[in-house]
Simulated scan of single mutants.
Amino acid sequence: MKKIILMFIILYGSMAFAGKATAQEEEIAQLLLNVEKLSQFKQILSDMKTGYDVLNKGYGTIKDISQGNFNMHEMFLDGLWAVSPTVKQYGRIADIINDQVLLVKEYKSAFNRFKSGNMFSATEITYISGVYDNLFNESLHNLDELTNIITANKLRMSDDERIKAIDKLNTDMEDKLRFLRSFNNSTSVLALQRQKAMLEITASKAMNGIN
């Protein structure tokens, strides 16, 4: 009987030990697995940090380059505020101013003639005056544009752009002067026709003894 009890105790102890050993093995295996996962996680973090450093460095480089380009661009734009001697001495500038002087002189002379000739009604004189006023105001606008173009710190333009703008103003001023002369000629012809008609009527009345 004692032998049977002793054998049972030994068997139970062996089983308990075996169970305990198995549990320890599982804990060790789980621990090793956790260590491996931790190592992988650390590698992932390391790769992420490396990627971030590369990205951040690249961004810094791009920022520096873009800032450098911006500064160069600013310098270029700031230079466009200046007006070179080539532009200031451009011959078309004098032509524009001369056309403006001619426009004023010619429209004033013609208007005084039309008003004093008594060939036009008050309404017609008002219309003629309106045409001259509009033309004069538009020519002043051209001079304002010209002043801005040839004055430093007014417009950001290259020399080529300023020259082209001056050429355009010159053409526009020439068109205004041509229009003025055409209008004056047409109006003068109308005044002469009316004067001739009045003379013919006066002569006809005189021949017929009509007062």
Results as ranks from 00 to 15, higher is better:
L135I: 12
G51S: 07
G19V: 12
F111P: 01
A191M: 11
Q195L: 09
T22K: 14
I5W: 00
H73R: 10
F179L: 14
P85D: 11
T202W: 03
E106C: 06
G58V: 02
F120L: 11
K20W: 04
N137G: 06
L77V: 09
M7D: 05
F136Y: 11
Q100P: 00
A94P: 03
L155C: 03
N211R: 15
A203L: 09
I93G: 04
D53L: 13
I97P: 02
S129Y: 09
K42T: 04
L55K: 14
I44Q: 07
L199P: 01
T187A: 07
F183S: 03
E74P: 03
A206F: 07
M157P: 00
N142K: 04
M173D: 04
L77R: 02
N211V: 05
S66M: 10
M48I: 07
N211K: 15
K168R: 12
L31G: 09
M1A: 11
N184K: 06
Y59S: 10
N208F: 08
L55C: 04
L80F: 02
I93N: 10
Y52G: 01
L11H: 01
T151Q: 13
A152L: 02
I62L: 14
N137S: 12
S116M: 02
L135V: 07
K205R: 15
R156E: 01
I201A: 07
N71R: 04
D159C: 04
Y12K: 15
M119P: 03
L55G: 02
